[in-house]
């Protein structure tokens, strides 16, 4: 009968079914970032929220990645309208306070939001340990391939993107990433090269 025909039909359908099955294993909302392992895009962002001592920065100062060479930089993109940002905020401040004696710089980048809303939000969340900066036109966000908030980038002492996290980052994971970079000597052994604005 048609065993032969059925075999041919199955053979023809197999690649299509395999392709569809493979597609089902992938999350279409997750965008693979090409940045980890590459040099982090430079930025120069103005402080609007000072943070708390000893991590405080003066409002109006400009923070540049080039001047942080040798430090591990945690760049967290957030917004006052972002619900998930509330989940991670306390964890970020806690880890930042725990790392004050280490070469680690935390920066909160306000994404598509206004400074007054950001300040109100920080006050409502009982403060923020590290400084907050503005990103006019979302230029830095686009430079980092951002597609939503919150997103967190961990940059090593040599200025390379070591890790990117999409969504609220748990304190344990962030601590693990920073500690592993510190243990690998990323921050300590990094050359303190020329300051790039």
């Amino acid at each position: 009968m048609n065993w032969r025909r059925a075999a041919w039909a199955s053979l023809a359908a197999a690649p299509v079914v395999t392709l569809l099955a493979w597609g089902m294993t992938r999350d279409p909302n997750e965008i693979h970032s090409p940045l980890p392992g590459r040099e982090a895009p430079a930025f120069a962002l103005r402080v609007f929220a000072p943070g708390e001592p000893p991590l405080a920065r003066t409002v109006g100062d400009t923070l540049t990645l080039g001047r942080m060479r040798g430090k591990i930089v945690v760049l967290n993109f957030w917004a006052s309208w972002c619900l998930e940002c509330r989940v991670e905020h306390r964890d970020l401040s806690t880890v930042a306070r725990q790392m004050t004696d280490k070469p680690v710089q935390f920066i909160g980048v306000l994404y598509n939001d206004v400074a007054s809303a950001g300040l109100d939000w920080i006050q409502g969340m009982s403060g923020q340990a590290y400084p907050g900066v503005l990103d006019p036109g979302a230029r830095t966000a686009i430079d980092y391939g951002l597609y939503g908030v919150p997103e967190t980038f961990v940059i090593d002492g040599k200025g390379r993107v070591a890790y990117k996290h999409t969504g609220a980052i748990p304190a344990e994971l962030l601590t693990l990433k920073i500690d592993s970079l510190l243990a690998a000597g990323s921050a300590a052994s990094a050359p303190t090269g020329p300051v790039v604005p």
Binding site: I31, H32, S33, D143, G145
Partner: peptide, 20 residues
């Protein structure tokens, strides 16, 4: 593409696995 990967292109480049 350097920021978002090839995902950012609505029409993928006709090479490699994209040929499918």
């Amino acid at each position: 593409v350097s920021k978002y990967g090839e995902w950012i292109l609505l029409a993928p480049k006709a090479r490699g696995f994209n040929l499918v």
